[in-house]
């Protein structure tokens, strides 16, 4: 088998702070293949952004302790020299961010911002770069691309701005696109369009895509594989249909159950009780134990890793399969008594 496009092995990102070391990411592994969309889901603060900022060497010099390996086509990005890394950013990895209003420079025309990306990596003239920018805008389905290129971000709608961001990330046809919550700031109809564009571009360019989101439903629609993260750890991973239809980890259950569904039998909105643990000196054992209604003694032992349960579906829960089926059918929607909030 060939090497994956992107492979993360045992990644840890720790931030030393005056209050202690924040373990934002702790032993994370994942892989993305060419032509595949990997969805990453998890609550706020689970370490999704930090992971990919680390991959881009964008965490800021000396502010984070990063360990493990982040391999792009087999080459470790964490040991890549800054000058070389600069050539990878934008050219081999494109990245788009949550809020396209603040992610675009307010004082520059959007066309110029895209052209700048081209000129940072290729030795071409202004005119040609401008043409490439308009082309890129056209490819992401922006109407009147020539005129739009001359406008400033504040003259565009949220959806158009995010298209500009996508055009900017893809103008050099990178191998990998990292989309960090690209639709969180947009309304649902626009969200669908943006996800469609991302998928379309993925197919057209044959690239790998990482799609970070708060919402498992969003991700399940467009991603082939889903990885669920909690407090800096992977808790479940598998083909998105299977994770969505047959979730294994109690945290994933919580994520799914907190979705409003149209399904009459399960019309309920159950937020997961409690809040994530502090990432400074987290207690040993499963990170979710404090909020898990099904916690038992073993949960406070060692940190559970992802374990393959067949069908490419893995989870990090210590409950036996039979027990899971039982508790899933008779859910306890409150935190177990005595469990710390």
């Amino acid at each position: 088998m060939s090497v994956p496009l992107l492979e993360i092995r045992g990644l840890s990102v720790h931030f030393p702070t005056p209050d202690g070391v924040v373990r934002a990411v702790d032993g994370l592994s994942l892989a993305v293949e060419r032509g595949e969309t990997l969805g990453i889901v998890g609550e706020s603060g689970s370490g999704k952004s930090v992971t990919f900022l680390a991959a881009m060497q964008l965490l800021g010099k000396g502010r984070a302790q990063v360990q493990g390996e982040i391999l792009l086509d087999g080459v470790d990005l964490l040991t890549t020299r800054p000058a070389e890394m600069r050539r990878i950013r934008g050219a081999r990895i494109g990245m788009i961010f949550q809020d396209p209003m603040s992610a675009l420079h307010p004082l520059f025309r959007v066309g110029d911002q895209i052209a700048e990306t081209v000129r940072a990596h290729e030795d071409i003239g202004r005119r040609e770069a401008a043409h490439r920018a308009v082309d890129a805008l056209r490819q992401v389905g922006l109407a009147n691309a020539d005129e739009r290129a001359h406008q400033y971000p504040h003259e565009l709608s949220g959806g158009m701005r995010q298209r500009v961001m996508i055009a900017m990330a893809l103008v050099l046809e990178p191998e990998l696109l990292i989309a960090d919550e690209p639709t969180t700031a947009l309304d649902t109809t626009v969200e669908a369009q943006i996800l469609e564009i991302i998928t379309e571009m993925k197919v057209r360019l044959g690239i790998g895509v990482v799609l970070v989101s708060h919402s498992l439903a969003t991700v399940a629609d467009v991603a082939e594989t889903v990885l669920v993260m909690y407090a800096g750890r992977a808790v479940e991973r598998g083909p998105s249909i299977r994770v969505f239809a047959d979730p294994q980890h109690p945290y994933t259950w919580g994520l799914l159950d907190s979705l409003p569904t149209v399904d009459a039998r399960r019309e309920r909105l159950v937020p997961i009780a409690g809040s994530p643990p502090s990432l400074i000196d987290p207690p040993p054992g499963c990170r979710f134990a404090g909020r898990c209604p099904y916690r038992f003694d073993a949960c406070d032992g060692d940190l559970p890793d992802l374990i393959e349960r067949g069908g490419d579906h893995a989870d990090a829960c210590l409950l036996g399969t039979a027990d899971r089926r039982v508790v899933r059918r008779h859910p306890a929607h409150t935190t177990a008594p005595g469990a710390p909030a």
Binding site: M56, L58, R86, R87, I88, R89, G90, A91, M95, F97, D99, S102, A103, L104, H105, P106, E116, T117, A120, H121, M165, M168
Partner: peptide, 13 residues
């Protein structure tokens, strides 16, 4: 600002 992160993510010097 976010747009500075974007500028770096674009691979600018």
């Amino acid at each position: 600002e976010d747009y500075i992160r974007t500028a770096r993510a674009k691979g600018l010097r």
